[in-house]
Design a binder for these strands. Structure first.
Length: 425
RNA sequence: GGAGAAAUGGCCGAGCGGCUGAAGGCGCUCCCCUGCUAAGGGAGUAUGGGGGAUGACCUCAUCGAGGGUUCGAAUCCCUCUUUCUCCGCCA
């Protein structure tokens, strides 16, 4: 949610900035709803004030034993007017809120112009894609040699799921473990364990609702809980409705969770392999920071994710998303893309965003700024560090050998227990 | 799953339907006093919103959440949520 003032006082400027994202703000509609809201709110509050005053007078008169009937008669119609005014106000506020809740965050000024992912700007590259003196296998063929099975998963559940057995299962666990240890021990994050099902309010807080319900899995029982699409939701909501002290910031959390996405609208995309699944593992980094620190935090957090790729000796590039491609709640996003030799291209493996106060406003996460009386909204920054499934893909594809064996990078060996996943049979 | 109890400000804890945004205590901030410390005295100390110039000031909402009764609700009624105790079940 944007600051309501952006719509009251700087409406045209806000519309101009949103246009960079390809969002056309209905300025006239907002302005008229806003005018209506103001008039109704003032009227309602006047009526309420009058009611309070008169009610107190009745109480006092009664205490003195005076006849209160004339006073009661005087307020006879007040209740109805108040109810009417209140109802209109609620109605207008609802309309306004429904509209504004669907407005995305403003892109930061450093975000490049552009309409789609084709306009994203590559900022840096790390590592050199190896050249192979044999025909590289993609992760599906390679994984099949070591315990990755999509058909079994299709039998158990359906498409876009996988089973892992033996070395592949262990590799996924090793990767998650390695990432958690790096972030919690080297990068200063506190490891957290969170619910994998959340209520609607949590999803509203981080911005997945109300707009993107179709991307989510929802339970059908009375609870109506949703499976988390990312740990960002439960982890960020840990601080919902809190006022944090200066010393508590920055809050830095890391969590490893499965993520569930319906991938509605992705029919036909990435149908082969592990790239786009309904269920996948991810290690997520979340920071709650002071507003003035959030862009530094974004750089640092992105660096933490990059460290993982570097330790795993995986070539990647860093891309800044253009205004037209950044996510709904984000003001600025970096994507990290790992090199996949079989696809001969870079594929997203991490997405790191600064949401500024957009989520914090919905979540009511604030902090006590010493130099001002009122609490101030904090900023939230998060990113994948990394998507574990895709990391597994990157790892086996990049470190494969001619015979189908996979070399485990040094950093991961303590977690894998072996130097090489041997070619079986 | 069954039976009971509870939910009030940073914390503890009062609160006959009207003078309670809320006593009292603790904590915290500032001031006074004391050579320092401790003790003592005084003042202040919730959050969100609206109007107004992002001023003075005015005003509304909030006592777990949502409804209701009433001229008026922290206080009465209903629903829900959470917590605690006991029983059952269970990884």
């Amino acid at each position: 949610m944007l600051d309501p003032r952006a719509f009251r006082q700087d409406l045209n400027e806000t519309a101009t900035i949103l246009k960079r994202r390809g969002v056309i703000l209905d300025v006239d509609k907002i302005a008229s709803l806003e005018a209506e809201r103001k008039a109704l709110q003032v009227k309602t509050e006047q009526l309420q004030s009058e009611r309070t005053t008169r009610s107190k007078a009745i109480g006092q008169a009664k205490a003195k034993g005076e006849d209160i009937q004339p006073l009661l008669d005087a307020v006879a119609n007040l209740g109805q007017s108040l109810d009417e005014a209140k109802a209109s106000l609620v109605d207008v506020q609802q309309k306004l809120n429904d509209y504004l809740a669907g407005v995305p965050n403003l892109p930061h000024e450093s975000v490049p112009d552009g309409e789609s992912e084709d306009d994203n700007v590559e900022l840096s590259k790390w590592g050199n894609p190896k050249s192979y003196d044999f025909e590289v296998k993609d992760h599906v063929d390679l994984g099949a040699l070591h315990g990755m099975d999509f058909e079994k998963a299709a039998k158990i559940t359906g498409s876009r799921f996988v089973t892992l057995a033996g070395p592949m299962a262990r590799l996924q666990r090793a990767l998650a473990q390695f990432m958690l240890d790096m972030h919690s021990q080297e990068h200063g994050y506190t490891e957290v364990y969170v619910p994998l099902m959340v209520n609607a309010q949590s999803l509203y807080g981080t911005g997945q609702l109300p707009k993107f319900e179709e991307d989510l899995f929802k339970t059908q029982n009375d609870f109506g809980y949703y499976l988390i699409p990312t740990a960002e939701v439960p982890v960020t909501n840990m601080v919902r409705d809190q006022i944090l002290s200066e010393q508590e910031l920055p809050v830095k959390y890391v969590a490893h969770t499965p993520c569930f996405r319906s991938e509605a609208g992705s029919a036909g995309r990435d149908t082969r392999g592990l790239i786009r699944q309904h269920q996948f593992e991810k290690v997520e980094l979340v920071q709650i920071v002071r507003p003035e620190d959030s862009y530094d935090a974004l750089e640092a957090l992105t660096g933490h994710a990059e460290t993982i790729l570097q330790k795993l000796e995986l070539p990647y590039r860093k891309v800044v998303l253009c205004a037209g491609d950044i996510g709904f709640s984000s003001a600025k996003t970096y994507d990290l893309e790992v090199w996949l030799p079989a696809q001969n291209t870079y594929r997203e493996i991490s997405s790191c965003s600064n949401f500024e106060a957009f989520q914090a406003r919905r979540l009511q996460v604030r902090w006590r700024k010493p130099e001002q009386k009122k609490p101030e909204l904090a900023n939230t920054v998060n990113g994948s560090g990394l998507a574990v499934g895709r990391t597994l893909v990157g790892l086996i594809e990049n470190h494969q050998q001619k015979d189908g064996s996979i070399v485990i990078p040094d950093a991961l060996r303590p977690y894998m227990g072996v130097d090489v996943i041997k070619a079986c049979d």
